[in-house]
Amino acid sequence: MNAASDRDDTTEPFRVLPVDYAAALADLHAVRDRVFVHEQRVPVELEHDDLDPRCLHVLARALDGEPIGTGRLVPPAHPGAPAQVGRMAVLPQWRGKGVGDALLLALLQQARQRGWHQVTLNAQVTALGFYLRHGFEPRGERFMEAGIEHQAMRRTLAGASAIEDREAAVAVTAALVLAARRGLCFYSRELDPGLLDAPAVLEALRRFGTAGHGGQARILLQDAAAPQRAHAPLLALAQRLPSVFAFREVDDPVDRAYPSAFLANDAGGFYFRGLGHRFDGEADLHAPGRARQLRAAFDRVWERARPIVEYRALGL
């Protein structure tokens, strides 16, 4: 169970520190019971569990000492297993003030100090944006926990995560689109059937296109005709939002021989596939240097690519 704000505009003074569970038990449960048990109606027997005594805990306090936020880190079950973030809770009057960000960063620092390189969590769906911004990637299908819809998420604290199948590819692509501020770059062979036509990705692109922030998704293709022949649903979405989606086809023989495909956003995230016709590759939602490198490579090819004039008949 993780309930956290998705904003970081700190306007009130507070501090976050690691605490001993036995010594801080009353303060930890004062916050968690109010948020989970009373506000979200989680049964108290689910909120209070046997893991607490062996977890690492952090506590946020206002400067007057009032406990205002909590979080815990469950140690790995065995070497190489991930640690798990949980019990992220912030009192209502302190949400939107950066408390959740500070709690999560403190927990990630605890993991790094102990050499734990994989961290997972089960995020309440309403807090997905918050965890996406902190570099967590969705894994698998959503599920119900304590009567609340959740999404399993994972972050690698050292290096990119391996993407091994279509399910992971769809999840990370949707996450990268949702995390974008104003810019997306897609380098694709033929609009990636099975990926860019997946419902979760199309919905993320629709939300990006209708957000009203002046964003643009630029899409480079190696074969412009194939998506038309396949009636790719992204073309229909782009027809409704022509100011958002721009298409070009690579023209230089060197560019046509490029075997890879990638997506990079302007929030420091990327998904790179060494072989563009496959889903396996690597991704990181927070790797500004690598994302900047991919966007720069994209820009160079974009400048010498040809606009897809045949799409204009579709209203694009």
Rank of each mutant, 00 (worst) to 15 (best):
F245H: 11
H38S: 10
D192C: 03
L46K: 10
F208C: 05
R312N: 13
S188K: 01
L176H: 06
L294N: 01
A81E: 13
V172E: 06
A123W: 06
P82F: 12
A296D: 11
R304N: 06
G65K: 08
A313G: 13
S260M: 08
L107R: 07
P253V: 04
L108E: 15
W94P: 09
P199Q: 09
H286F: 14
Y21L: 13
N122H: 15
A174G: 14
R278K: 14
P75Y: 09
D6K: 01
F208M: 10
Q293N: 06
R114E: 15
F130V: 05
A200H: 07
I308K: 02
F298M: 07
A171I: 05
A146G: 02
E167R: 14
N2E: 13
G69L: 10
R304C: 10
R290M: 07
D252S: 11
P227T: 06
A102Y: 11
Y21E: 12
T10A: 14
Q293L: 13
G315K: 04
R166A: 15
R304Q: 10
T70N: 02
Y187S: 12
S5I: 01
P138Q: 09
P288T: 00
L221R: 02
G194N: 06
Q113V: 06
Q239E: 08
D284N: 15
D6Y: 09
A168D: 04
E45H: 14
F262S: 04
V254G: 06
F143Q: 10
V119G: 04
D64A: 12
H213P: 00
M144L: 14
R300N: 02
L28R: 01
A246P: 00
L314W: 09
F208L: 10
A238P: 03
L91K: 02
L105W: 09
Q118G: 04
A171L: 13
V35G: 01
Q118F: 09
Y311Q: 05
E66Q: 15
L285P: 01
M144G: 03
R278L: 14
G269C: 00
G147H: 04
R229M: 09
